[in-house]
Write a protein that binds this DNA or RNA. Sequence first.
DNA 1: AGAAAATTAGACAGCCTTGTCTAATTTGTC
DNA 2: GACAAATTAGACAAGGCTGTCTAATTTTCT
Lengths: 229, 229
Amino acid sequence: MPAPDITVLEPAAQRGHIAKRVSILDAAANVFCREGYGGANIDMIAAEAGVSRQTVYNHHGDKTNLFVAVVREITERTNAGVFATLATFPDQPRDLEADLIDFAMRLNRNCVCNRDGKFLRKLIQTEGERYPELFETWRTDGPGKTWAALAARFARLAHAGLLEMDDPDVAARQFLALINADLQMSFVLGITPTEEELRTAATNAVRTFLRAYGKSGRQPAENAPSPPA
Amino acid sequence: MPAPDITVLEPAAQRGHIAKRVSILDAAANVFCREGYGGANIDMIAAEAGVSRQTVYNHHGDKTNLFVAVVREITERTNAGVFATLATFPDQPRDLEADLIDFAMRLNRNCVCNRDGKFLRKLIQTEGERYPELFETWRTDGPGKTWAALAARFARLAHAGLLEMDDPDVAARQFLALINADLQMSFVLGITPTEEELRTAATNAVRTFLRAYGKSGRQPAENAPSPPA
DNA sequence: AGAAAATTAGACAGCCTTGTCTAATTTGTC
DNA sequence: GACAAATTAGACAAGGCTGTCTAATTTTCT
């Protein structure tokens, strides 16, 4: 009874109810992610949620339903996170390189390297072909719009004379590919990169990106004792 | 007593025997790739191999064994393929851009977009954490050596004055990341890219790579009506 | 306190899968 | 053709998982 409000809007005994609901969803996400759909079983999920098996069925019907609910939730949360991060893009950069590096770090840290990112990578890889409709909203609302939005930001920077590029869509995809280049091995091993690895990866990526698309002539090469100008 | 050989080198009635063996391995690879380890069952594999279930057990013992055999075979084949392709790197390029584009296409076509590449991506994603030792030989003999070998080639080109880079290892990883940038969506959807998509992806990647690392000043931008020199 | 709703443990049937076994059949060699 | 090995279909037990059901218990609201 944490909130004995007077004009109760909430149905009734739903405080602990929804607590259990999210607990189940959360546990299910972990187990599905760890074991895959086929390898996951309801008892594991119930145990990890601290709930009886029957309660799982009460809340979500059957296994397929539960899986769909998990995918939907994580998809929505991930897409929201991506766009929140996209909103921090340096539209009016003070130091373009530094600002892009920070942006790249935020993108990797908040959207790619967290639990949800890992889950989606894995699930889409394993079940994406079998249940394409399941991930359709992810596909259209996620990468599709992400690329377009990022491309628009780059186009604006180019229009402002800070970048020079032919096709902003290609540049956006390449930016995303570059910021993950150094993290591939971590992804494969399931390791969460340290903050330092994140910074190194972002720095390498942005330097190369700016060497290719920066306006101010070729950068003097990352940290090398390059020839004088 | 499987070999009552006199002077026989080949065990005996092994002609059709080994035929079935590879047939089983091949079918198992397909089924494991499609269904994952947990979702695959021996009957599917036997049916797809055109063989009775018992024969599968005769050849490979149990399911785990079969899986290990499949992973080992595909790992070896893939690593061999990667190094064969790596051997076609343009060490003495006539037209650096064109030659790198062709090389990138070969890499993608022969190592990344084929069935084995797809299988490994999927399997490593799903089972890599659970059975790390299974993919250890892949990890050490595959990406580890690939990156080093590619980095060495780039370093040689840089030494020859054709490229300008600070860290060849970073450049190698970025090259591999870039040539896949445009294919991410196909990977997710499980689609095999067309030859034309392959060429576009390789062209975009190599042009950006050379804008960043090419020696001959900044390239005039992909296919844009850029300002005159 | 008392009533209504939610939760729990446990049992249960039905289904699928693995791995073994057997008896009949095919294949390949001498 | 005869013999040995491999293969086959089918049955089979053991075990796991899903989803349902029930009766007892706890939680929550009035």
